[in-house]
Design a protein around this nucleic acid. Sequence first.
DNA 1: CTAAATAGGATAAAAATAGTCTTAATTATG
DNA 2: CATAATTAAGACTATTTTTATCCTATTTAG
Lengths: 131, 131
Amino acid sequence: MRITRETDYAIRCILYLSELPDKVAMAGEIAEAMKIPKSFLAKILQKLTRAKIVHSFRGVKGGVRLAKKPEDISLLDVINTIEGDVGMNICAVNEKACDQSKECSVHHIWIEIREAVENILKRYNFENLRK
Amino acid sequence: MRITRETDYAIRCILYLSELPDKVAMAGEIAEAMKIPKSFLAKILQKLTRAKIVHSFRGVKGGVRLAKKPEDISLLDVINTIEGDVGMNICAVNEKACDQSKECSVHHIWIEIREAVENILKRYNFENLRK
DNA sequence: CTAAATAGGATAAAAATAGTCTTAATTATG
DNA sequence: CATAATTAAGACTATTTTTATCCTATTTAG
């Protein structure tokens, strides 16, 4: 029922980049500032890059910066990128994973919770998360 | 972000017992009906017993039955028994686990989500879950 | 050309989840 | 009272997921 540490790192990383919207920051710099293992962060940045949340530059003076304005990145975007769909039960994400979805009286509750959580996570973007 | 299979089993087990409020059902019977590994269910029933959600009887003709009326058992009760507190991030459960709770701009969101999820789970009891 | 950076994949270590097994305690019934 | 059936408790094992690390490309500024 928890987000993983990887997701927590991803959020902290975007939080850091949101303070420096134009700077191209190296993974090592972000890792040190946000206390994230550097090689782990490198993998996280790859996912964020593929999701077009950050833009990366290779080579000397390379690094990453946000690919959009902080206000256009929601918490949900970041969580979805790292963890995939949020859902309390696998059946709320993929009906096929549960052979009993049809007769299951609990199923609709997982859906309801999923929607409630997504709605909250959508409301917060990295502009209004800045202190 | 998912409930565990153990929790899913526990819910299905209470769902089964809610249909037979007075019967003392054996673990083996519940396991077969709900497709739960029997020895795993035995451990789950111990937790539910300690939490006074079910009452158990040992010896020949022993088994378990609900310790309260289905309407007095919420989904949250069962989830809390198996998983402990619900919370997207450990810091929403135990502030001490996160050294940055005070300055963390995301912290209050985990709390908001936790409360929203708990409120939904409280609304559903095993009387209104029966089809 | 070289050094510094990300990309991608393989691998490893640690933790959590899922499940099993054995022994003990309890109890209805012959 | 002996026995068989049942839960209680804890140790143990297996599997999966999480959390990394490392190595080899590839890219690029200077």
